[in-house]
């Protein structure tokens, strides 16, 4: 079966990739819509304690039951989606921009600038990603601003490395030569001519990076270093439900499944985009 599909026409392969793009976008779309509509489609307040009905089982009133402070799990799940998706998408922007620019400059000019940027990326790549993030957040103090700063410091290296390679090969191409001959400034050549041609690579990478960042935020919150309570977040929901795992398994499991679904949908989108945008 695999052999057959491998030998099938490029068109069929592209169709299959479109399929994964559609599934991914569909899943993500549903989650994003639910998250946006959270205040209107959830009947409860995500923060209000209701100490008379703690650890209630799922019911028509509480779709997924309540947590240890009587808060509605379904409501918190959706509000957590808002925050975690926001952080995931938001935290990818700074590294995307800085990484892309630094990579482009390094690839275009080469020489000492390239050496400096490459040395910095190599140095950061030498450390395990999560270890670095956790160490940075820990020293900056827990909280969302620290997460943004840590991601900005650590995550740009992948973009820089990808863009640098692309720019290196674009530098010798005819359209760049032509632009140079016409006397365009370096800035104009990089921004107007090279970047639009190489940007698809970092954009597709950003899709998988969002997954990494969301998982990172959830992990940090699980460890008590991320989103501070009582703000709902999947990581802190998993952590606080853990004590009740043997009796109220859904408290930790459902937010965990939410993370998996979001991760899966971004991965499918990234996968679909990669092949969609690949030149034939």
């Amino acid at each position: 079966m695999t052999a057959v599909s491998r030998s099938a026409s490029p068109k069929a392969a592209r169709g299959r990739r479109s399929f994964s793009l559609m599934i991914g976008a569909g899943l993500l779309g549903v989650i994003v819509v639910l998250a946006i509509l959270a205040p209107w489609i959830t009947p409860h307040d995500p923060l209000a304690h209701n100490l008379d009905s703690i650890l209630a089982p799922p019911s028509s009133d509480y779709l997924l039951g309540t947590d240890h402070l009587g808060r509605d799990v379904w409501t918190r799940l959706l509000y957590a989606a808002r925050l975690d998706l926001l952080i995931g998408v938001g935290a990818v922007i700074t590294p995307f921009v800085t990484g892309t620019l630094l990579g482009a400059v390094a690839g275009y000019y080469g020489g000492r600038i390239d050496l400096a940027v490459s040395a910095a990326t190599d140095m950061l790549f030498a450390f395990p990603y999560y270890v670095l993030i956790i160490a940075l957040v820990f020293s900056l103090g827990p909280g969302i601003p620290s997460i943004f700063i840590a991601m900005a410091i650590v995550a740009w290296v992948s973009y820089a490395r990808i863009v640098r390679g692309e720019v290196l090969s674009a530098r010798g191409q005819q359209y760049v030569m032509a632009a140079k001959t016409l006397g365009y400034s370096d800035l104009r050549i990089i921004v107007r001519h090279i970047l639009p041609n190489v940007i698809t690579q970092p954009v597709t990478y950003a899709m998988s990076d969002i997954v990494v960042i969301i998982v990172g935020v959830v992990t940090l919150s699980y460890l008590g270093l991320g989103v501070p309570p009582p703000t709902p977040d999947w990581g802190s929901m998993i952590a606080s439900g853990q004590s009740y795992l043997t009796t109220q398994w859904q408290l930790s499991t459902i937010p965990g499944i939410a993370v998996v679904i979001v991760g899966l949908s971004f991965s499918l989108i990234g996968d679909g985009l990669t092949h969609r945008l690949r030149p034939e």
């Binding site: 994003v32 946006i36 959270a38 209000a48 304690h49 998706l85 926001l86 998408v89 938001g90």
Partner: peptide, 26 residues
């Protein structure tokens, strides 16, 4: 998706104040 996120940001503040009111009942 950024727009969606930005919308979320505004609405985020609303529940915080209602929570404050709701907690007094407990």
């Amino acid at each position: 998706s950024l727009l969606a996120a930005a919308c979320g940001d505004d609405a985020e503040e609303a529940p915080a104040t209602t929570a404050a009111a709701a907690v007094t009942t407990t």
